[in-house]
């Protein structure tokens, strides 16, 4: 094995710029799809709480689709498939404005929304029924009971799962390279093909992903611990 020399990669301005650009795009895609996923998950949860069976089935179908179809295939379906169905004007506009990244954000966001909504729903279901009874017995309205008693507990219950799925979302951003998004993993291959320093480049990427994943997991552990005093009865 040849000598390990990180400097070749890190001190070369071209390579450095490429890797930084990749890192930035990874973070942008991850953050945007996280926001989309969270928002959509709240919508899904609200719809799920409606008393209509149609609503329940619709949400269940949505979750089922996104959990059973591989994320890579979902990305492809959006970028190659659905984009083709759009009106030509919209397609042109998209092609001028980073279509790949937009579709990646949409696909990843929609996919993770399914997981987030299930996590929140599980968080809700973990609350003992006595809680809502106690709240109603004290005279709180349904909305009041939800706001002061149920939802705060649901969120606390859901935090470990939400954090884990956030880390998954972050890692899934790497799949976007398959549809041409110039994120970190894509850039890694580019730099590798130009520098032939595979080991070093891969190491840089690995460190990047590890650092952020561990940061996220650490933040999650902190959050969970802060709420543990208030957690289980």
């Amino acid at each position: 094995m040849h000598d390990f020399n990180l400097a070749v990669i890190l001190q070369n301005p071209e390579f450095r710029a490429m890797l930084i650009a990749g890192a930035e795009l990874t973070l942008v895609v991850a953050v945007l799809s996280w926001l989309l996923a969270m928002l959509l998950a709240l919508v899904l949860l609200t719809v799920r709480l409606l008393p209509s069976t149609l609503a329940q089935r619709a949400v269940a179908a949505y979750v089922s689709y996104h959990r059973n179809v591989p994320t890579l295939v979902q990305l492809m379906l959006w970028y190659f498939g659905i984009s083709n169905l759009l009106p030509q004007g919209l397609q042109d506009w998209l092609n001028d404005h980073d279509a790949e990244a937009i579709f990646a954000v949409i696909a990843l966001g929609l996919c993770q929304a399914a997981y987030f909504s299930e996590d929140m729903r599980s968080g809700l279901r973990a609350i003992p029924p006595g809680q809502i009874e106690a709240a109603r017995a004290l005279g709180h309205s349904y909305v009041g009971a939800m706001r002061y008693v149920i939802l705060p507990q649901a969120i606390r219950n859901a935090i470990p799962a939400l954090v884990n799925h956030t880390v998954s979302l972050f890692k899934n951003s790497s799949l976007a390279m398959a549809i041409g998004v110039a994120e970190m993993t894509h850039m890694v291959r580019e730099v590798e093909s130009r520098s032939f320093r595979t080991f070093e480049v891969y190491t840089v990427a690995t460190v990047f992903y590890l650092v952020f994943s561990l940061l996220l997991m650490g933040a999650g552990a902190l959050l969970a611990r802060q709420y543990r005093a208030a957690a289980a009865r």
């Binding site: 009874e133 106690a134 002061y148 008693v149 957690a231």
Partner: peptide
């Protein structure tokens, strides 16, 4: 709200 109810399983709000 005018009737006080005490449950067998206490049902205090843990958070």
């Amino acid at each position: 709200s005018r009737i006080g109810f005490v449950f067998q399983s206490f049902n205090l709000f843990p958070h």
